[in-house]
Each structure stands twice: as C-alpha cells, then as structure tokens.
Design a protein around this nucleic acid. Sequence first.
RNA 1: GGCGCGUUCGUCUAGUGGCCUAGGACACCGCCCUCUCAAGGCGGAGAUCGCGGGUUCGAAUCCCGCACGCGCUACCA
Length: 478
Amino acid sequence: MSIRTRFAPSPTGFLHVGGLRTALYNYLFAKKHHGQFILRIEDTDQTRIVPGAIENLIDTLHWAGIEFDEGPNKGGPYGPYIQSQRIELYQKHARELVEKGYAYYCFCSPERLEKMREEQIKSKQQPRYDGTCRRLSQEEVEKKLAKGEPKTIRMKIPEWGELTFHDLIRGDVTINFKTLDDQIILKSDGFPTYHLAVVVDDHYMKISHVIRGEEWLPSTPKHILLYEYLNWEKPQFAHLPLLLNPDRTKLSKRQGDVAVEDYRAKGYLPEAIVNFIALLGWNPGDEREFFKLDELINEFSLERVNKAGAIFDIKKLNWMNSHYIKNADLDRLTQLAIPFLKEKGYDVANFQKVKIIVEAVRTHLEYLAQIVDHVDVFFTETIEIENGEAQEILKLDSSKIVFEKFIRKLQELDGEINRENFKQLMKEIQNETGIKGKNLFMPIRIALTGKAHGPELPLLVEYFGKEKIKQRLERFIN
RNA sequence: GGCGCGUUCGUCUAGUGGCCUAGGACACCGCCCUCUCAAGGCGGAGAUCGCGGGUUCGAAUCCCGCACGCGCUACCA
C-alpha cells in the first residue's frame, strides 16, 4: 500500500507556523516513504472564509519548499481538492448513515441548543445534546421533513462502551462513549462539519496516514466510528504536539508573529524556518542540528516525534536564521536584501556594490530586515568624527603618516583598489613605517566613516574605491 | 466541571533499568582570535529529571497516587 498524507488547512487567513510544521511533517513522512503529499482545502465553514487565503497558502508552502503532489490548482486523480466543491459526496454519505441507522435528523434550533447548554452549565451538568431528536419516531421525522423544517444530521454515538485506538505518537488511547456527544455531521446549510468531511475525503483520497495537531485527539473516536459505520478501511493516526507561546498557551498572535508570511516579510530564509520548525518536536537522535529539506526527508520518522508541546523560541530561530544568512549564496542573499534597502531609500542600482555591503554586514543579521540598521556608513556623504576614541586616534602623528603613505600608494596603484591589494598595501606601509595594528588601520577606518566601529575595512575600502578614499583622507592631512 | 494528553537546565532537546558525578544546542558570562563591531574557536554557569510512594542490588527510565499545564467539551476547524 502506498503512503499518502495530506495537509488540510482552512482558508481562514494566513498559514500559521504550527500549520507549516504540520504540513512539513506530513510532507517529510510521505516523501521518506516515496508516497504522495496532498493539499486539501477545508472550507466547509462558509462564514470564516477569507478571500485570497487559498492562493496565499499555496504560495507560502511553495516558498517553504513544500511541494504537494495533488491539490487545488494542480489537480490529481481524487479531486476536487476543495471541500466546498464536494458537497454532494458528503450529503450522500450523510443520508447513507441515516438509512443505515447510524445517524438521524435533528430539528433542534441553534437557539434551543444554546439555551440547553447554558442551563446545563449553570446546573453544573456536562454540556451535552439531550437526544431529543434521536428519540423521534419515524412518523414525526417524516412529518417534519415534509414540512421542510430546518434540519441537521447527527451521528449516533453508542450509549455505552469505550473505544481504543492506536496513535503512532501516543500509543493506545481509550475514550469512553459517554464523554462523546451525538455530533452534527451535516449542518442545516447542507455543508458537512469537519468530522464527516475529513473522513469522507481521507477515504476517497486514499490517505494512509492522518498526521494532524493534538487538538484532534479527543474527536478521533468519532472519526473511527464513522469509518466503521461506512465500512471503510481506517487510516493510521498520528497526533502532533502543539506549538506554544512563551507562557505555554497555544501559539497565538499577540505574543509575536505566528503567520509564516510575517517571517518571510522580515527576511527569514525558508530553509532556516523549515529547519527550525522541523526540530520543534522532532530530533534526529544525535547532535546534528542543521538539515536541508532532503536531509530531513531522509532522517524523519514519526517514532522520533515528541509528545509534549514545544515553545516557539524566537531567539533560537534567530540564531538559526543568522547561520543560514552567513552561509547563503551571496548573489541570492543580495537579491533578497535589496527590497529592504530600497524601501529605506538607499540607492541599489549597482548590484556589485550592494553585494559588498551585504557581504560586509551579513554576520550582524538575524534576519534581512535588520540590514538597514548596519549600512549607513556606506551611504552617508557627510562624515562626522565621533567623540572619544575616534578623535584621539586622528590626533596621533602616526595617523598623518599613514594617510600620506596610503594616498601615495593609491596613486601608484594600477586599477581599482580591492580587498586583496588593500591588504598588500597596508603590509607595505607597515614595513616602511613600523606603524602597525590599531594605529595603522584605525585612522583609515575613522577617516572613511567617522567611526571607530564598523564593517571590515578591506570591504569598506573596496566599496568606496580610490577616488572617494582619496577625498576623505586628504581632509586630514593638513 | 467532565474527558483526554503531557511534565528532563529559562528555552529546544538527548536519554527506553547500571555507560548519568544527566549529554548537546539557543540565550547568558568569560577567555582567545582580531584595526573595531560581529562572526568563529575554547571554557563557565545553569536540571535534587513536577511531587509522593512503591518494584529492584540499582530508576530520569517500570508501577501506583497526587499536583500542575495544555487540549477538547460548537450547526469552528
């Protein structure tokens, strides 16, 4: 049997980092076993749909490198992959369940149900459907149906007994039917609820492994019951631990960004996000921490997924992202950094020059948006010498000697100055004057930028070029 | 409230009865490297393994109870 997994988000907004991890684990597991990964859109709650969310979801998944084999905009043998386009299928099976006696029509109004719930809570009872319509006679049902009363369909939960199922991550889980409600599976608007839709689709789409968030664990028995009622083969289940806020509540907005998009917009690299998120709840069993997507596919296994929730620690994400920034291809990194510089109004017309800037400051960045905090020395034309160390060094007699020597060497130099010949040049000055270390390099740094701290000198020099360097140094000779 | 699932340094985690005086990583601190700031290298501090009972020669690892946290308890997913 081939392995088939799916990621089934609701198009209610942006892709959540928790959702990305669920998608990733499903993808990794499928690919590890040479199976298929399917994207399915669960839009059965028409009131919560956000326009553009599907495109956004697909785009973000693509950005992360998680490619699905079947899904919306792509097709596949078991489509359509959007639930609102499969309504008749769910209705058919809901009716089938009624006919078989595993479900029944319910004519209770939302108002009545709400009132009932309130009263149950007030009298400290367990909020639960009271079974009014389950006890309706055949005739009464026919009559109400004929009158066209608004109706839903509820699945029957056995009145006693319990159900044990095996979860690939948690082991055997047992739930007593007494704690389960006769769940509505088809709403009055004709749309199915999650519980019906998920079972029908997973069946028809031949899903072999249902890998989803822990919040679904308590309702899994309902799904298993449905498989049994419909006489379908059950998939395997694996319930992932939750991603949490620093205060251990379920990861949510307010306490930082949760949309993958937000991280993308700040200049986090997809490989860093994927690597980081993969390690939230899973580890390879040894001390390696850096994994490319194909390495994750190779290493991944559900057996090594943790049971406890994991706090989303932005500091560790930042560290991991900075690692990837340091090691990224420089052309690519420059392309990614340009929008941030442009937005700040910096001139980015000369790609080669921007590249030098990116190379010079990349070790300072946790994410690309921070680049604008480190590049002012490359763009200011007005050099002001800061107080303190910078002023002191310029006053040194040796500094003037360095300037004079350096300007002369520049004039003698064939072609432009670059990081290599700059180092050579400085070595010569050191040999000729005996000035070295701080006294040799600092004056140039300060004359060029006005500051005692900043990016690597060889790169600054290469960036500015002969003419500009000469202008800036000459200021201090007389 | 009921039910379910969890609980190892602040955080992510290794650990499946003796290798654990509990290992690694982030963050933090120090040293080295270095023209500076970073990066990098080296080192330090940091966990009586939620608590209490067992089982065993021996328990973070097995069993029981409790506590705490989270999730679910919708015509939301």
